[in-house]
């Protein structure tokens, strides 16, 4: 599926809609360059899951958790990751549980379960983005 977005607001909307077709246990691998809309998508995803939280980029902190929606959401960003063992250090595998959703920015930097859903964010013409999964 491929969706075109013309603004950060529309990318959030795509994330919001996505929340209604994803079940607990889902592992979302978000792949795309800086500024392509990965965090905006997760903002919408969290809102669609019923969280009232202010979703911010977890680049520095590696993971933010939003537990106030209908399914707990763990939002990772592997941007800073230099070696796979750094993920072991934070207990990454322990976050991938069947009762939560994990949205992982730069998910291509590690090996994720076979069942993962890869979502790609690309720069289109002018200021558009192409989101596909």
């Amino acid at each position: 599926m491929t969706v075109r977005s013309g603004s950060p607001g529309q990318t959030r909307r795509i994330g919001y809609d996505f929340a209604h077709r994803v079940a607990s246990g889902a592992v979302l691998s978000l792949v795309g360059d800086l500024g392509a809309g990965k965090t905006e998508f997760v903002k919408g995803l969290a809102e669609g899951l019923g969280s009232a939280a202010n979703v911010t980029s977890p680049t520095f902190t590696l993971v933010h958790q939003y537990l106030d929606g209908r399914i707990p959401l763990y939002h990772f960003d592997l941007y800073r990751l230099q070696a796979e063992w750094e993920l072991d250090e934070i207990g990454f595998q322990e976050y991938l549980r069947p009762d939560v959703i994990c949205a992982i920015e730069w998910g291509n930097k590690t090996s994720l379960p076979e069942t993962k859903i890869s979502i790609r964010f690309e720069f289109g013409s002018a200021e558009t983005r192409i989101v596909s999964w």
């Binding site: 800086l34 500024g35 965090t39 905006e40 903002k43 911010t56 980029s57 680049t59 800073r80």
Partner: peptide, 23 residues
């Protein structure tokens, strides 16, 4: 008040990355 997306320090790091500068 707080940031709604990136932290200020993160913006510095990411712009550096766009310019091909080290982290």
């Amino acid at each position: 008040g707080q940031t709604r997306d990136d932290a200020a320090g993160e913006a510095f790091d990411k712009v550096a990355r766009l310019l091909g500068l080290p982290y």
